[in-house]
Design a protein around this nucleic acid. Structure first.
Lengths: 350, 350
DNA sequence: TGTTGGCACTCAAAGGGATAGAGTGCTAAT
DNA sequence: ATTAGCACTCTATCCCTTTGAGTGCCAACA
């Protein structure tokens, strides 16, 4: 069945009304608040059909209607119109994202913080996916006998390091040789093309004795692999407690319980991103509504992320988790604006 | 007024009972559940006096009594006896604190995580106070023109780094000279004795031209200062939502709202620590109950921390924030055991 | 003087209607 | 296709009563 024009308007109005009042919407209040030139009985018929199509539902027999997940989905896909933020709002965001930081990570944390404050919801960002970035420098510094620090500088101005154990009696000089050899042969290589074999081959040119060498090479390899692990920054969980949507302790507990496992959330975002890429979905937004989200306790939430770019091939995600009952157009423009600002500021680092 | 023996027992029983049942305790149930060889009327008299002394209070006229902050305080100071954890519990904790990590920070995070899981409350740890640790190494690595990485190795095996901006046309060689000069003259100095002047003096021995030199020295100084900033690790906020003590949305919101500002919590812990030191309070535990905690929304909480030691002069705090209505002796032994385990594992790093 | 049984009193919590009101579906007329 | 009208449904709210655990106080007792 197709949605005729009026039915679209009705659904639109129901979503708008429910989002702003948090009350199930009845045919009468719809007539009162919106300019439909028909009677409430007509709307009742329309609403019955919308319900039949699964776009709206009743909490109980004698209540008004609320949008279903499918209804929100229809709203988001075809009905809403996105407006730009007002200059004032834009300024507010620009001001908050402090751009004087020296590391990309701080910039991302900053943006996440801003997003949570401006939307009033939970915000999150993934660290950049560094697989496609390449090694610009790799140094191994001796910290003390048996311990060294592997420092890597990646394209896109990201610096990573890791403390590793090395054989006790390796000399400073030997370490520097190994470090130099690795750097010489791996510089310019994307991280996802560096394997244990590549690293071991790189180390062969040194005259360091085999077993010692091997351990160091392994540790260096592990450090490189760790560098492209994903981090997630989550912020503003407590804000959900102020929303009427989570006034039931049970829901709130489930939600925050799930969010507390940031690794799990990170994994999910990553999956979503990969799935979207495979589908060739190059929409810059990913929107998941209610049950579409495969995480426990997020049934009443919507999950919206955008992709930011650090370089052409290095990107990450930033977005929010809020109640399904949100002002989608507003929140999407906020995310979009933060993302754009982030992209702009990131140019300084590349 | 002094507490005679029976009154002590009564208070003890009231706290125990209230902690385990979460119900105000009446004179009759006290008689039923504990072996007082007197009548309920006698206990009523005692309870009236305990109330008069401010140790217990009534939620309303016809309810039983619950301990007041002062009552809990008395309980903690004089009444409770701390038992060791059972071997099984000890094993459980030892197993969870994964000691195979390579950095102190990870070890601390680990311990924090374990503490939250075993107590079921919010756990927190402060990073070690590094003011008294000394510089073992300082290297400045050129990342790209205009940007360098300052890497510091501190006594106690802590590694810190910071990306800094430097003048664009400084050469690799010049940077190395400066780096060497700073390292040479500051190695072995405690962080809190390093000032901008010390750093600038150290740099004088190089032949790098004045204005360029000055900027690098300033950035190096800033990096050193940043190294002794305190971090806080907070975990398990969501667990508070499962406690009946925070079944009111309002309380839960206030609590999590405050905890979400981790900088503020860190500042408070630090204040507490300093105050304790000034008073020469060398109890290894700091316990704050209810209103004693100068943080909004923690009126129904107790805040217990212990001090761990990375070296003789470098220490930090680890502990929990839970409901006032907690099994103090149990929680304290849990914190104590985690602290001891942490101390033991930390020896590997020093 | 400390202890006890007895008793009137208090108050939150739980249960049970009754009522109001917003909303619905259906039908018959337009 | 639209509308007015109407009977029906169901929650939320208010109010009233009952229940029961607990208290304070008094007079008697050891």
């Amino acid at each position: 069945m197709q949605l005729d024009n009026r039915k679209k308007e009705v659904l639109h109005a129901i979503v708008d009304d429910y989002v702003s009042t948090n009350e199930p919407v009845g045919s009468k209040s719809l007539i009162e608040r919106y300019n439909f030139n028909v009677s409430s009985a007509t709307l009742r018929n329309d609403m019955a059909e919308l319900e039949h199509m699964g776009l709206i539902e009743k909490p109980h027999t004698s209540a008004g209607r609320i949008p279903s997940d499918k209804g929100y989905r229809e709203y988001v896909n075809s009905l809403m119109t996105i407006e730009e933020l007002s200059p004032k709002e834009q300024l507010e965001i620009e001001k908050r994202i402090d751009s004087s930081v020296d590391e990309v990570t701080d910039l991302i944390k900053n943006a996440t913080h801003t997003l949570s404050e401006t939307t009033g919801f939970v915000s999150l960002a993934m660290s950049p996916r560094l697989k496609k970035s390449f090694l610009k420098q790799l140094k191994i510094l001796m910290i003390e006998p048996g311990k060294a620090l592997v420092v890597m500088v990646l394209s896109a101005g990201v610096v990573k390091d890791k403390v590793v154990r090395i054989p006790n009696f390796l000399s400073d000089e030997q370490i520097m040789k190994i470090s130099g050899a690795i750097e010489k042969s791996l510089t310019g290589k994307p991280l996802d093309e560096i394997t244990l074999v590549t690293v071991e081959t790189a180390g062969k040119s040194t005259d360091v004795p085999e077993p010692l060498l091997k351990q160091v090479l392994y540790e260096a390899y592990a450090a490189i692999k760790q560098a492209d692990e994903l981090n997630i920054y989550l912020e503003g969980e407590h804000r959900m407690l102020s929303l009427p949507d989570f006034s039931s302790l049970g829901r709130a507990r489930d939600l925050l319980g799930t969010l507390s496992d940031s690794g799990m959330v990170a994994g999910y975002v990553n999956e979503m991103e990969n799935a979207a890429r495979e589908q060739g979905n190059d929409d810059s937004f990913m929107i998941r509504i209610g049950q579409e989200i495969a995480l426990e306790g997020l049934d009443d939430c919507s999950f919206i992320t955008a992709t930011y770019n650090l370089t052409d091939s290095v990107s990450g995600n930033i977005g929010v988790i809020g109640p399904k009952r949100m002002l989608y157009s507003k929140v999407i423009s906020q995310i979009d604006f933060v993302k754009k600002k982030l992209n702009k500021e990131m140019q300084r680092f590349t």
